[in-house]
């Protein structure tokens, strides 16, 4: 038989699938699902990290969380950073994408220029900006050399929150530019052509052609920034260290610093679970809300 193949040992189909699926499944279960379940369990206990048998305390950790002034303050800071940051990143991202949505060498260079912070990473960005905005930093010296008193970018609580938002937007909106540019590529030029023939102006074309066609891009960008900003940690650590006096603690920052002050790990777990639930709920809620806008495009 010229066509004969050498005999092969083949596993039954189910076993082959199991071989292919198992390693990844074990990893995600062991390092994501189990830790989350564990944290959820610990959040209902008074575990201090030392005693072998954590005692159940019911919802105590969660009610304590509601009345904790530090948590409340961190939640407000996180809310401000997230809301303002998400809006600013998307406005700046879409705005610049519209300006850059034309082939050309200069536009390619500028696209690279706006998103290089992405490869530098938040901890380095935080240090760099603290060297610029700090009490002893570059801008302060420019002011004092000119005989003015320096602005309290990082030393006044309100200014410091503003600085965090500004640095976060500076470091993230380049990604939005790139994603909105990709979204703009999907708008068929024929539609713009048709709008122009119908005598629509620039704003009208944007309002009734570009914007609705961009709906899926807007969803992706909103969810991405939102999820990213709710967990802002490294920039805060390097820029303000949560200061002055804990006034710029974000929720993620609070959780990480609390958890290592030990002794109340159950409480730390309750904070962690709360943040995870909030992020998941907002991401899913926003996606569901945006589906209407997206359906309008495809309909």
């Amino acid at each position: 038989m010229p066509n004969s193949k050498r005999p092969r040992v083949t596993l039954p189909l189910g076993a082959s699938h199991a071989v292919l699926l198992t390693p990844a499944t074990i990893m995600i279960v062991l390092f994501m699902i189990v830790p989350i379940v564990l944290a959820a369990y610990l959040s209902f206990t008074d575990w201090d990290g030392l005693t072998p048998n954590p005692q159940s305390v019911g919802w105590d950790n969660y009610t304590r969380l509601l009345h904790d002034a530090d948590v409340g303050h961190a939640a407000i800071v996180t809310l401000i950073v997230t809301v303002v940051g998400t809006l600013a990143c998307n406005a700046a991202g879409l705005g610049l994408a519209l300006l850059l949505n034309r082939p050309g060498r200069l536009n390619t260079v500028l696209r690279a220029v706006v998103f290089y912070p992405y490869v530098i990473g938040p901890i380095i960005i935080g240090f760099l900006w603290s060297a610029i905005l700090g009490a002893n930093g570059a801008i302060a010296h420019v002011f004092s050399n000119a005989g003015h008193s320096p602005l309290p970018f990082l030393s006044d609580p309100t200014w410091a929150i503003g600085s965090i938002v500004a640095v976060v937007v500076w470091s993230q909106f380049g990604v939005n530019v790139v994603l909105y540019l990709a979204g703009l590529q999907t708008v068929p030029p024929a539609l713009h052509e048709a709008a122009r023939v119908d005598g629509a102006g620039r704003w009208q074309t944007f309002r009734s052609v570009t914007w609705p066609m961009l709906a899926p891009s807007v969803t992706v960008n909103l969810v991405l920034v939102l999820v990213g900003l709710l967990r802002v940690y490294e920039i805060v650590l390097a820029l303000t260290g949560g200061g002055p006096a804990g006034r710029t603690n974000t929720f993620a920052f609070l959780i990480l610093s609390e958890s290592f002050r030990a002794n109340h790990l159950g409480y730390g777990a309750a904070q962690a679970i709360t943040l995870m639930v909030v992020i998941a709920a907002l991401a899913l809620g926003l996606t569901a809300l945006r589906r209407r806008a997206e359906d309008a495009v495809t309909a």
Partner: peptide, 8 residues
């Protein structure tokens, strides 16, 4: 959020 997951 990986920064929070890392604790458990």
């Amino acid at each position: 959020p990986s920064q929070v997951l890392v604790i458990p």
